[in-house]
Amino acid sequence: MYLGWFPLIFLLIVFAASMPFVLMALAQVVQIKSPTVLKYTAYESGMTPFGDARIQFDVKFYLYALLFILFDIETVFLFPWAMAFGKLGLFGLVEMFLFIGILLLGLVYAWRKGALRWQ
């Protein structure tokens, strides 16, 4: 099985993930706790918090997320094309221009439909 550099990256991720927890544990050991009731309420500019903090948010976020997925996948498609550009020649150029053109049309459509309007 060919793993290349990824075992090393995985090791680094494991070490890097452990480091914050070690620091937090260290802080837990050395800090001095003096609990009061008011200290453990959520901060809301000095007033008593009211209602649930997990409020509903705008549907616009989801529209942007959908558009993002579309363009992110496009970007991922473009990278192999960019790598193989020297071999593909004119065919690759025209083909990808069509692909990007269609996606640009999609963006223009979303724009005209008001999906990019942020209120």
Partner: peptide, 11 residues
């Protein structure tokens, strides 16, 4: 910052 109290509020 290391010596500051680590506060976790309710909820």
């Amino acid at each position: 910052l290391l010596f500051k109290e680590d506060i976790m509020t309710t909820g």
